[in-house]
Design a protein around this nucleic acid. Sequence first.
DNA 1: TAGACAATTTCGCAAACGATAACATGACGA
DNA 2: TCGTCATGTTATCGTTTGCGAAATTGTCTA
Lengths: 127, 127
Amino acid sequence: MKTTSKIITSPMCEITCFEQEKVARIKAELLKEEVLLPQLAERYKLLGNTTRLKILLALAQGELCVCDIAHVIGLTMAAISHQLKLLRDQGWLAMRNDGKMVYYRLRSDDLLKALKDDGRLLRERLA
Amino acid sequence: MKTTSKIITSPMCEITCFEQEKVARIKAELLKEEVLLPQLAERYKLLGNTTRLKILLALAQGELCVCDIAHVIGLTMAAISHQLKLLRDQGWLAMRNDGKMVYYRLRSDDLLKALKDDGRLLRERLA
DNA sequence: TAGACAATTTCGCAAACGATAACATGACGA
DNA sequence: TCGTCATGTTATCGTTTGCGAAATTGTCTA
């Protein structure tokens, strides 16, 4: 209810901005990507883990059950199952039940499309 | 000091491996990438963060001091400084001292080369 | 030389991550 | 159909990560 137009003390340096125009312009540029960047980061984060990369490469050779993936990579099924869920949530894996076994396979098309699109986007913006 | 050749109970399912051949083959395939995968994951992990992506995009517009980057992104200089260090350690940024100011700029060539190479590697292995 | 300011480093905390441990589910034999 | 065993998922715990506050460093200037 204060009516004074006092400048709010921002948590960061509030005085010196050495290139106000430039800063404002770049800020506006970034604002355009407000939606895309978090999604991009999410996908790259998923690729930023050796276990998950190994799972993707393993499944590139064909369908596998959780147990076999665990053997290939050398971790417990629980650990693998957790990572599989993350990759599945991203839409890069598909699963199929057969009795008590669960087989996972790569959704190559979606994965490769994501890789290509994201890479292109970044390269465009960074060039 | 036990001399019995008792089977060590591994932390994971030790009996059933449904496609031993396939598992062994894929395991061997992955072994070839033993060195590359962690490096790949490291780079993707670095890209898997919105703040760092914003820094890269901001610097794509040209050289900036830490203070201005902080303004652009809306975080404290301390936070930015920390992320700048990570990106610099990866070799994607260069810095220049000018008095008490420090200017950062993108090492576009290295960054773009890394992006291109990593993307190609993954797409090849996943195709 | 003292003071001011940009940047970095250190420390602490909250949130996210990853692997282990407990649990649920389905298959198969007695 | 009941028990039992193996597969796979969910819950739990320790570690790591990202950010902010405060202290430190280094540089310019009065």
